[in-house]
Design a protein around this nucleic acid. Structure first.
Lengths: 337, 337
DNA sequence: ATGAAAGCGCTAACAT
DNA sequence: ATGTTAGCGCTTTCAT
């Protein structure tokens, strides 16, 4: 296996010069550099040797931590981050933090330790201790979909998004509006469902609409539980004419349940979702789109910036959402309402 | 930062013993090991130090290479692999190989070089040269969705899957059956579309059904292009009574197009997909399910096995698919056919 | 079963 | 601008 020594020999220089040349440092003669690059290519020597780690203390890779990696939202963010990181020549280490048992959890920061130069944490604060242990790594952290004073963050305004979804329903004449929200006993203290619920309630109140607790059902942000929750809601009296679902997947679950009951959106009930899931278009679902992939990219950029200048303080970005009106919501007449 | 030296001091032993104890090697007294583990935990010293790389030559991580990482199929496989690898204490390095420019491509194996102990390559053979350069790394490689004599592989029988999808349509009385297939000018020499097409044609021939080339349209395995292709097909004469789509996403695109034209599956045209996409249930799509996540897990296991015993030859696994009948296909009467 | 010491392949500090 | 020489933090002989 060709190492830096072989390359040095081939180019007729010292290993130190090879190291400098390949990393684009100053004070290397252009012709020398050319020779070295030629030698490196010939021996297919890597531009960033993996073993550089030990000597330099930098790993040239960043960790991405997420509770799920195959769900739409997460895979989009990861994809965005991957692109930005690879462009910058950084490797991406993937860490899924959902199913680990207690004892292993205790070791989390030790897993990460020394393996990554920075961390991107997607949308779920683990327990406080776990989070502290991440902070204690002393490396830059960028949060996606959350905020924390000590970390950079990229997120949307969930309250505003929920507001415009709800306002859309109100504008269309709906007065009896239901809510499909996250479980109150969510295992994670996740702010997203809370914020989306808050925005919803604000708009109801501002428009003088009465809120009936029996118009709310809960899901866990998947289609499956949402469909079941919807069954439940449909069985209750005072059926709403429209429903705001805190995620597109839940909205699609709701629509599925509707169909099972011989009902249809928007004819029988209007449905608005949240996220901009790729399948929302297929379902003709009205929704609030968020720039998911972009959020991953920006998180990556933000940590790379901080890797360059460790002293700037971590930026907090809020990206815009867009109401996309499709065919799952409709205007209703005053008599219907 | 606590290193092996600190742990050694704390435990009152040498660094060599710490190294041995923490990696579970033989010839370490139980009580010594206990002391060392305690010291390590106290100083939050990682079980598998990242810098072990240099000295041992092993990186304790495997690379996952995929052309996309946010598409459903790929994210599922990655998720499965991640679980299996993490359980075994291996890190997962993610490499997306789609958008890289020519010159960078040339450097691919150099990117990987020395960074991973093994490779899992998902569903797309890059160019032959790129593949050769991966092989030349001299590390175990597991393929998902493809085969190669020198690599382990985990796949399904695409021909058989396509056969049972098509047979299902035939069994329901369809005689004029259309095909939504991959682009013939696919940038990758991807065997999946070819195999699925082959299975389809076999069943048609076996049942003495005539094949009309104008019943075939092409997509790129996404909803979007499929919808457009479907528009095209619907505009042609001799409209088929059923269509086999080579992927669920294409099937959903087709159904979307159908709706736009005021048509509906299965009433106007029966649609059968392929993959077992999570949204297939929502769409009530009849499909061929493949155990996607499991394929990722098995690929991981297979390389870990080979990491242990380098001399066994790479296993080639074929996992079963299942026909799941939902509501996008229906039996038609002889008069209709 | 444990320790001492010689690397692993590279980078960094110091020469020149 | 380039070479020399210590390390980096760990693993792995080889002793004991």
């Amino acid at each position: 296996m060709a190492g830096i020594k072989e390359v040095a020999e081939e180019a007729g220089v010292s290993t130190a010069t090879v190291s400098r040349a390949l990393r684009g440092l100053h004070h290397v003669n252009d012709s020398t550099r050319a020779k070295i690059i030629a030698a490196a290519e010939k021996l297919s020597y890597p531009l960033t040797p993996s073993t550089a780690n030990t000597a330099s203390g930098r790993t040239n890779s960043v960790g991405v931590v997420a509770p799920y990696i195959s769900r739409w939202y997460f895979s989009q963010v990861i994809s965005g981050a991957e692109q930005a990181l690879r462009e910058a020549g950084l490797d991406l280490l993937l860490y899924n933090f959902s199913q680990m048992k207690g004892r292993e959890r205790l070791f989390q920061h030790q897993l990460l330790k020394g393996r990554v130069d920075a961390l991107i944490v997607i949308s779920l604060p683990p327990t406080v201790e776990e989070f502290d242990s991440m902070l204690s790594l002393g490396i830059p952290i960028a949060l996606v979909g959350m905020e924390h004073e000590k970390c950079a963050s990229v997120k949307i305004d969930d309250i505003a998004g929920a507001r415009s979804a709800t306002q859309h329903l109100v504008n269309q004449g709906h007065k009896q509006i239901g809510l499909m929200s996250g479980r109150p006993d969510d295992p994670f203290n996740f702010s997203v469902p809370q914020d989306r619920r808050k925005g919803f309630m604000q708009v109801l109140a501002e428009n003088g609409l009465e809120w009936l607790p029996q118009r709310e059902v809960h899901g866990d942000f998947t289609m499956h539980t949402a469909a079941r929750a919807m069954d439940d809601l449909l069985a209750r009296p005072n059926r709403p004419t429209a429903i705001f679902c805190e995620s597109d997947e839940m909205a699609m679950g709701a629509m599925q349940a509707l169909r099972r009951h011989g009902l249809k959106a928007p004819d029988d009930i209007s449905i608005v979702g949240f996220d901009g899931h790729e399948m929302a278009e297929f379902s003709e679902l009205t929704t609030i789109e968020q720039p998911v992939q972009l959020m991953g990219e920006m998180a990556a950029w933000s940590i790379m910036e901080r890797l360059r200048k460790p002293n700037i303080d971590p930026p907090s970005l809020v990206l815009p959402t867009t109401l996309v009106v499709r065919n799952s919501t409709r205007r209703i007449s005053p008599e219907e309402a």
